[in-house]
């Protein structure tokens, strides 16, 4: 006679057999044995329950139904677990090198020029561009350097064999020895307060060696207005140098001589050796980084500014020199050799 205990025994027997089912065929055999429409054990249970007493029938029906659901679910689960899985996505060895992008690089000189331009642009400076082939007037005379001026010795000039007509409609006879001619051209037409920097290539008749090249880069700056003093020069250039080299670097000013400024000052940056003395600063603890001064009244006169009303300061730096100090480069020729092993150390 069927009763609750018999159903429980059947359930336990099923659990044992399920635990032993290792293949899809075992699972199918189990399904046939328990749930088969003719010989299935649970199917047979239903037939017996039909003969049970009417009072016992609902409870036994519920238990049999639970068992059927249990077997159905667990068999499906087991079958899914045993089913052969779909072919998996092939494994990638992600420790292999990536496919590199073709990365370009900015030349350290133009990268530094751009950085300097940004620093001055933030201080409200206009950035100039101008011809590299110049005339004597803009390169020398207007800068207080008449033809026999000894200062012309300081910068041996490369001259063109024949005057060159240029798009900016001047007759060039030489390669500019500094970027100051741009400032002269600017002031000739501006006739008002100015705040400019003039970056670019300049040329001197220097033979190639560890610290000289016949072509190099400069940035020069000029601020003209009413009430501009040497104090303004000091804080501007201290600020510039600290933005470039770091806030903790000391800066000092020393009297110097340039034909186009008076008073003139050389500006020194404290060396990274912090005064201990090293090869870079030649044991002095200081690095000469900028030339500067108050605009010479003769320069104002040459461009038609009233030197009583206006004062101003000018400054200039060699970009190669700054780049060598920044990047620890000890041979200027590296900039012009363009060895890719060098260039690629400055990724963009």
């Amino acid at each position: 006679m069927v009763d609750a205990a018999a159903i429980a025994r059947l359930r336990a027997a099923y659990s044992d057999e399920l635990a032993r089912a290792a293949t899809a065929a075992d699972v199918q055999a189990l399904r046939d044995r328990y749930l088969g429409r003719k010989q299935g054990a649970v199917t047979a249970l239903w037939r017996e329950i039909a003969h049970a007493s009417p009072e016992a029938r609902p409870e036994l029906g519920r238990l049999a139904n639970d068992l059927k659901t249990h077997i159905d679910t667990t068999l499906s689960e087991r079958r899914a677990a045993l089913a052969p899985s779909k072919p998996s996505t092939p494994r990638l060895d992600l420790t292999l090198p990536a496919r590199a992008l073709a990365r370009g690089s900015r030349h350290p000189l133009s990268a530094l020029l751009e950085r300097i331009e940004h620093i001055f642009a933030r201080m409200g400076y206009e950035i100039l561009d101008g011809p590299e082939a110049e005339d004597e007037y803009h390169n020398f005379e207007a800068l207080n350097m008449p033809p026999e001026h000894p200062a012309r010795d300081m910068q041996d000039t490369l001259y063109l064999a024949h005057p060159l007509a240029t798009r900016s409609s001047h007759l060039a006879t030489l390669l500019r020895t500094h970027t100051s001619p741009m400032q002269i051209r600017y002031m000739e037409t501006a006739q008002r307060p100015v705040r400019i920097i003039a970056p670019g290539r300049v040329y001197r008749r220097d033979n190639l060696d560890v610290t000289h090249t016949p072509m190099f880069h400069q940035v020069e700056g000029l601020v003209v207005g009413e009430g501009i003093t040497m104090g303004d020069l000091k804080s501007t250039l201290i600020g510039f140098l600290r933005q470039l080299f770091g806030e903790d670097r000391p800066v000092t000013f020393r009297p110097s001589f340039f034909p186009y400024t008076e008073p003139s000052a050389d500006i020194f940056l404290g060396c990274t050796c912090r005064g201990a003395g090293c090869g870079v600063c030649k044991q002095t603890g200081w690095l000469e980084v900028l030339g500067s001064g108050m605009v010479h009244p003769a320069v104002f006169e040459a461009v038609g500014y009233d030197p009583e009303r206006y004062t101003g300061f000018a400054f200039g730096a060699g970009i190669e020199r700054l780049a060598m100090l920044l990047h620890g480069i000890d041979d200027i020729r590296l900039f012009y050799e363009n060895d890719m092993r060098f260039l690629e150390q400055f990724p963009s």
Binding site: G104, S105, H107, S110, R201, Y203, P214, M215, Y336, N338
Partner: peptide, 13 residues
Amino acid sequence: VGAGFAECVTFSF
């Protein structure tokens, strides 16, 4: 630079 070229600076002469 974006196209993968390395910038050079050579003498003007």
